[in-house]
Structure formats: C-alpha cells, structure tokens
C-alpha cells in the first residue's frame, strides 16, 4: 500500500502537535529538576536577602556580592554543592560573616535580591538589623550545659550581651560550681555565625539555621495578656472549629474507670 502524501496543512498541524508533546515532556523533566534543586531550605543567604522564594527569582547570579565580600565568606553554589545553582550562600563553620559596618555585599547587588532597605535603620546601613539566620544551641553536646566552663560563643558574638547572654545557675552535682549557659536572643541575633565558627566542640554545638526553619510561631490565639501591644494581635485571630466532641461523662467517672476508657 502506498503511503498517503500529507497535505501541507496536515503536516503543519502534525509537526506542531509533536512539538507540543515533546515540549510538555521536556517541561516536565525540567520543572521536576528545578523543584528538587530549589527544595534545599537549609542555606544561609547574604545580609539583606529577600525571602527565599523571592530571592530565587530575583537573584541573577552575577556574583558581585561574592566579589565584594572582603573575607571570602560568600560563595556561589557550584554544580555538586547541592544548592540552588549559582546563588550566593555561606557556611559559617568555614567562614562566618564578620558583619562589616558598611555591608559591602549589599549595595553592589544589581538585581535587588539583596535589599539595602532591609539592612538599614533610619536611612543608614546597619548590619545589626540583618537577619541572615538564628543561632541554635544543642544542649546535649554544648559542654557549658555539662558544667564545664566555656563561653567561646558568647565571647565571639559581635553583639555580645544582646544576641547571646550567659545565664548562671547552681551546679547541684558538685554543689560548689555554676553552670554558665549560653542563651540566644532571636531579637538581636543576626545569624552571622561567629559563634558557630568559634564553638570548641568537634562539631559545632551552636549553629546557624535560617530563621524560617529555626523559629516557631505562637499564632494569634496565644497572647501576652499583660502586654497591651501584644494584645492587639488578638484582633487578627480567626475562629477555629473544634472537631473532637467534648466528653459527656463526668470527670469522676473517668478517674474511677481504672484507665479503661483511655485505652
């Protein structure tokens, strides 16, 4: 049987359909790759970085912030680093952010992915307003919690006394020594990582996490009733419908049941 010659119109439609099909397949693979690649949440951005989602779409990956950094803190993610390719980040255990007062990495950013306004107070650059991350202490491996005297992180902190304070309490085990416990205050901590860099344990017992990862959120149903300003948040609170039914049995019955109705 002889093959039927396709008309130009049919051929065009056929070619277009095939193109769309291949493009859909390609687009699927491409999107899946990007979705995986940008899923990495655990990375620290330069000071003044936009929220991660906006940062990823705004950063053009020119590396001008990296070039401006005098301490070689910032690096661009290379293939094999398992981080969104070409975007700047830093690893504080290797090189922390030394919190330059003139923040050279931010004004050079051509794309606005590093936002000058977010690291300025009253129109002046203020590195103390940076929010790169938040220091988190692992109480199990931090030797200060064992009762050994160490205040390396406290001493290393550029906002000493505000971002990290030392809390004293009695060491009951020896009866004559004090625990000197490092406490991080999220209101002051910039996430520069000098504490993580200075930590004496084999693997740092104080480390920087992105603020979105490290911080919880109380929500509008829990307020500080003694704080007039905080009470305002209650206005945002929305009604929550309870889905579990309230037990109709009396509380005494439950106590006398021998825990039967608990299991």
């Amino acid at each position: 049987m002889e093959k039927e010659q396709m008309s130009d119109r049919r051929k065009f439609i056929f070619d277009m359909a095939r193109g769309v099909g291949i493009a859909a397949l390609g687009g699927f693979v491409w999107s899946a790759f990007i979705d995986e690649a940008k899923a990495s949440q655990l990375l620290l951005r330069p000071p003044g970085a936009l929220k991660e989602k906006d940062f990823l779409r705004t950063c053009i990956k020119c590396g001008l912030c990296v070039e401006a950094c005098p301490y070689d803190t910032l690096v661009l993610a290379r293939p094999g680093d398992h981080r969104p390719l070409g975007t700047p980040f830093f690893l504080p255990r290797d090189v922390p952010c030394y919190m330059c007062p003139d923040i050279p990495c931010v004004p050079v950013c051509p794309s606005g992915a590093l936002d000058k306004k977010s690291v300025s107070t009253e129109g002046h650059l203020n590195i103390k307003s940076a929010q790169m991350g938040l220091a988190v202490v692992d109480q199990e491996s931090c030797i200060a919690f064992w009762g050994i005297q160490c205040d390396a992180c406290y001493r290393a902190c550029p906002i000493l006394g505000e971002a990290i304070t030392i809390e004293y309490s009695k060491n009951e085990r020896t009866g004559k020594h004090a625990f000197m416990i490092p406490i991080v205050h999220s209101g002051a901590c910039t996430g520069c990582g000098l504490c993580e860099h200075a930590c004496v344990t084999q693997k740092a017992s104080i480390h920087i996490l992105p603020r979105e990862v490290a911080m919880g959120k109380a929500g509008d149903h829990y307020i500080k009733g003694w704080d007039k300003k905080d009470e305002k948040r209650l206005e945002n609170a929305k009604e929550i419908k309870t889905t579990t039914e309230i037990s109709k049995k009396s509380a005494i019955d439950s106590l006398n049941s021998g825990m039967k109705d608990l299991y």
């Binding site: 687009g27 491409w30 999107s31 790759f33 990007i34 979705d35 690649a37 940008k38 989602k53 990823l56 779409r57 053009i60 990956k61 969104p84 390719l85 070409g86």
Partner: peptide
C-alpha cells in the same frame, strides 16, 4: 513557561 510556573529563571538554573 517553566519560569512562570516555577517562579524562577528556569534556563539560568541549568
């Protein structure tokens, strides 16, 4: 299209 869907510059990623 992928840039619009994924919310970042798609080709710059690869």
């Amino acid at each position: 299209v992928v840039s619009a869907i994924m919310g970042l510059a798609a080709f710059e990623f690869i």
